[in-house]
Design a binder for these strands. Structure first.
Lengths: 362, 362
DNA sequence: GTGAAAGCGCTAACAG
DNA sequence: CTGTTAGCGCTTTCAC
C-alpha cells in the first residue's frame, strides 16, 4: 500500500540499494545481469524516486517559487504560465503563491517558499522600493528575478517593460489625438508601484507638452465603485475627454462603468488601457492599449533563473526591459471640440483649486 | 552564507538539537532559561526550518499538487486561485502544472507531482473516462479531487457543475427565444469532455422539443480560424440564428469573428456562452451565459481534500455539483423571422444531406 | 561491479 | 527538563 522505496527494489532484485541507485540513475557501472534484475523489480513494484529524499541528499529541490499578486488578472496568469512552461522544460516544478496585493502576505509567502528550499524565485511585489519580501530575498542566498516590477535604486534582477516610457508614449499619442484633459484611473499606488510608474510617464508627456497635470482617480485593485468615482470625476472635471487606465482589466471596467452612466466610448469619451491582454482585442470597441509580452516576462525571467542556477550563480542584477507596442484599437478617438451644448450640459465651473482626487507627481 | 540548520542553533545555544526542535516547535518541555537561549540563537541566526528535512522525517510534504489545462482561460486561473487560497489557509503549498489539454502531458505531470510526494492533488483532465493520469492517481495512495470534470462511470471525487443540465437549460432558453437553428461551437471534444457534455445537454433540449439536432462546429482550444469556420457554417446552414459556444472565451472570440464577417450580435445573430467569467459581463454586448462558481470549485475541492487529509482518508468518491445560473446578458435576442431579403442574400439551398461539420450524439 | 556506511535536516522515542 | 540516537529515502565515497 505504501510507496515502494529504493530498499524494496534492492530487496526484490537481491542487491544493495547503492546498486539500485546506480542503475536507475545511470550514474555508475553495473553488470548486465543485475541491471536487468533491478529494472525488473523497479517496474514490477512501480517504483519511482522519492524526490524529498533526493532533495535532502542532493540539497537541490528542483523547485522554483512563484509569487504574484493574483491570477485574476490575465497578465499574471499568462506570466505564470510562461514560468511554468520554462520551468517544466528544465526539470523544475513550480510552487505558486498569490499575495493578493498585500505586503504582509508577500513577506509570508516568501518565507514559506524559502522554507521549502526552492532553488529560485520569480516574483512581483507591490513596491520594490519598500518590500520586506524583497529584503528577505536579498538576505537569502536564493537567486530570484522580479517580473513586472522595474526596481529603481538598489540593483536587482528584473524582467519587465519600461512602464514609464510606455505610459509616456500613451501620453504623447493622446495628445496627438488632441486630448488636453486626461484622467488617469489607477489601481491604488500603494498596491501597485507599476501603476505609479505609469502615472509618471503620462505626467511627463503632459508636462512636456505644456499642458496641465493629469487628473488622478485612484481605485482599489478590486475596482469598487467606479460609477461613483466617475460621477465625482465628471462633476469636478467635466472637460475630461480621455481616461487612461493603469491596466487593461481596469480599462474594460471603465468602459463598462462609463456605459452605465450613459457615456459611450469612444464617442463621448476615449479610453486607453495598458497591458495588451488578449481579451481586450476581442471586445468592441477594441481597446487601445500598450501591448506587453506578459507571458514572455515569465518565461524570460525563468530562463534567466534557470541559467543562473545551472552555473550556480545569481542572475545579473540588472533590469531587462522587454519591448512594448502601442496597439491602436477603437477606444481612442480624436477629442472633439466642445460645443456650446455640452458646455451647458456639464458643470461650467473651472477646475477647483484643491481637487481632492488630484495628486502631484512625487 | 549557507542556511543555518538546527544544529547551528543548538551549537550557539549550547544545547542539543532535540531541545531546539522542542522549543521551536513547542512540542515538549523546556526550562525558561534554555528556551530563551534557543530563541535568541535562532533569531540571531535567522533560522527557519528546512521543510525538506521535515517532510522526509514526518512523511508529510504539506504540499498539494494542482493540474489544469491552462491558465489562459480565466476559468482555470480563478479555480487555481481558489485552490491556492484554501491550501495556504490550511498550511499547504501548491505545486502547479499546466498540461495544455494534452493527454501525455497530463500523465507526466501527475507522475512528477506524485514523485514530489504531494499529499493530495486537485486536477482537471481532458477526458476522465480515458485518462492515464487519472488511472495513475487511482493507483497511487494519494487522495485527489477532480474539478470541472464530472466523471461518469467509475466513481471518483469531483467538484463541478452539471454541464449537461446547464447546457440543457441554455437549449431551453434559446428555444424559448424562438431559435430553431442553433450551431454549437465547441472546443474539440477530444480536448475537453466538458465541451462534449455541454453539447449533449443542448441536443437533449432540441430533440425533446422536436427540433433537429444542432449543428456542430469543432475548433481547436486555441480557436484558430473562426472566420473560415463561420464562412463554412453560414454557407451550409444559412438559417442559423444562434451560436452556443462551449465556453465564454470562445463565445467572445465568436462575437468578434462574427463582427469580422459583418454580422452583429445580437441583431444579426445571437451568441450564448458558458462559464460566466467576469470579463464577459464587462463587455458589450454583455454575454448571455451560464454562470458557474469557478473559484468555488477550486476552493471547495481543496477544502474537501484538506478535510480528508486531516482524517487520513480519501475524499468521498462522489461527484459534487455546484449550482449554476443562467445569466441574462445582451448577446441573446429573440430570433427574427426570416424575410425574403435575407433569404435571397444567403444561399437558398437546403441543408446538405451530409454536412461535414455536423456530428451526431454518441 | 558491488555493498556497506555516512549523512543531508529533522523529529520522536528513550534514557538520564 | 535535556541530550543521545535512530531513521525517514536517497546519493556517494570507499573498500572489497
Amino acid at each position: 500500500m505504501t510507496k515502494p522505496t529504493i530498499k524494496d527494489v534492492a530487496e526484490m532484485a537481491g542487491c544493495g540499494i547503492a546498486t539500485v541507485s546506480r542503475v536507475l540513475n545511470g550514474s555508475g557501472p553495473s553488470s548486465l545481469d543485475t541491471r536487468e534484475r533491478v529494472l525488473d523489480a523497479a517496474s514490477k513494484l512501480g517504483f519511482t524516486f522519492n524526490e524529498v529524499g533526493r532533495s535532502l541528499k542532493s540539497q537541490r529541490s528542483k523547485t522554483i517559487g512563484v509569487m504574484v499578486p493574483t491570477l485574476s488578472n490575465p497578465v499574471f496568469a499568462d506570466a505564470v504560465e510562461g514560468v511554468q512552461q520554462i520551468a517544466a522544460a528544465n526539470g523544475y516544478d513550480v510552487i505558486l503563491t498569490c499575495a493578493n496585493y498585500d505586503r504582509d502576505a508577500e513577506a509570508d509567502a516568501v518565507t514559506t517558499l524559502l522554507a521549502k528550499q526552492v532553488e529560485g524565485v520569480i516574483l512581483t511585489v507591490s513596491d520594490p522600493s519598500n518590500s520586506s519580501a524583497l529584503d528577505a530575498m536579498d538576505g537569502a542566498s536564493v537567486p530570484y528575478c522580479l517580473i513586472f516590477n522595474q526596481p529603481k535604486g538598489k540593483r536587482r534582477p528584473a524582467v519587465g517593460v519600461d512602464n514609464t516610457s510606455a505610459a509616456r508614449v500613451v501620453g504623447e499619442k493622446i495628445i496627438e489625438f488632441k486630448h488636453r484633459n486626461v484622467a488617469f484611473v489607477a489601481v491604488r499606488f500603494t498596491q501597485s508601484e507599476r501603476s505609479l510608474d505609469r502615472f509618471h510617464g503620462l505626467c511627463e508627456a503632459y508636462l512636456e507638452a505644456g499642458f496641465g497635470e493629469p487628473v488622478l482617480v485612484e481605485v482599489d485593485h478590486e475596482f469598487g465603485d467606479l460609477e461613483v468615482a466617475f460621477a465625482d470625476l465628471f462633476d469636478r472635471f467635466p472637460d475630461t475627454t480621455v481616461l487612461f487606465a493603469s491596466n487593461d482589466m481596469l480599462a474594460l471596467a471603465c468602459i463598462d462603468g462609463l456605459r452605465a452612466i450613459g457615456k459611450r466610448v469612444p464617442n463621448d469619451i476615449s479610453v486607453v488601457g495598458f497591458d495588451g491582454i488578449s481579451v481586450a482585442n476581442l471586445v468592441s470597441p477594441k481597446l487601445t492599449t500598450i501591448s506587453t509580452p506578459c507571458r514572455d516576462m515569465g518565461s524570460k525571467a525563468t530562463q534567466l533563473l534557470v541559467n543562473a542556477l545551472a552555473e550556480a550563480k545569481a542572475p545579473p542584477r540588472r533590469v531587462i526591459s522587454l519591448p512594448f507596442e502601442f496597439r491602436t484599437g477603437q477606444s481612442l478617438s480624436h477629442a472633439r471640440l466642445k460645443n456650446a451644448d455640452s458646455e451647458a450640459a456639464t458643470s461650467p465651473s473651472a477646475k477647483s483649486t484643491t481637487p481632492p482626487v488630484t495628486k502631484h507627481m512625487k
